[in-house]
């Protein structure tokens, strides 16, 4: 609910004094400035970059972004909390998103969602104790012909049957894209890279 905060977007308690974004991340954000007539328009790209690099957007990261973009931190918080894509507390290395909208519902999404929860042993908006997976459901993922579908980080899996779920989640390459990547956005980093963006 865009206007209503859900539990996973409660900001993490890490609002320290020291800047959290590395120079590399800052430079990447700055590289987006020339695309827009106003610097503040680079906010969504900045949030994508920070979430890709650090894994989530903490209060401290919001302050850093605000400073870079010359806007009040409140404006960053306002934008962050509006969009369901951004996490303001640590999440699993792989985020499993299940579509729950009508086309997927009609082709069996409920059973798939139950299978994911059962296999991971967690509920919605939760992260496994080892930090490997977080699970959420979302409205339409725009892949209705492939319903029911699951998004694992950047990779979409269509026509998922409940019995496929354990094999799918155990596959280490289940988030790898088949198409060549553009280097404009890094995407979510692998298991060792999650803290690379930190200063």
């Amino acid at each position: 609910m865009a206007w209503k905060a859900i539990d996973r977007i409660t900001p993490a308690d890490d609002d320290g004094d020291a800047p959290v974004l590395s120079e590399a991340v800052r430079e990447k954000i700055r590289s987006f400035f020339p695309r827009y007539p106003e610097k503040r328009a680079a906010l969504l790209p900045a949030l994508h970059i920070v979430q890709d690099a650090v894994g989530y957007v903490s209060h401290r990261a919001m302050r850093d972004i605000a400073e870079l973009l010359d806007i009040p931190p409140a404006q960053v918080l306002d934008t962050v909390t509006f969009y369901s894509h951004f996490w303001t507390r640590p999440r699993g290395r792989k985020v499993v998103v299940a579509c729950r909208s009508l086309s997927c519902h009609l082709t069996g999404a409920e059973a798939v969602i139950e299978a994911v929860k059962r296999h991971l042993g967690i509920g919605e908006h939760e992260t496994t104790p080892d930090g490997a997976f977080s699970f959420v459901t979302e409205e339409c993922l725009g892949a209705c012909e492939q319903g029911p579908c699951l998004l694992i980080n950047e990779r979409l899996h269509g026509r998922v049957r409940p019995e496929d779920v354990p094999r799918l989640l155990n596959d280490p390459d289940n988030d790898r894209l088949d198409v060549p990547r553009s280097d404009l956005y890094d995407g979510i980093r692998g298991p060792t890279g999650e803290m690379e963006g930190r200063a």
């Binding site: 950047e154 990779r155 404009l184």
Partner: peptide, 14 residues
């Protein structure tokens, strides 16, 4: 481009 279209982003950007 909507955020969920990851694969398409790379196709389109390239």
């Amino acid at each position: 481009l909507r955020a969920e279209y990851h694969e398409l982003f790379h196709i389109l950007q390239r």
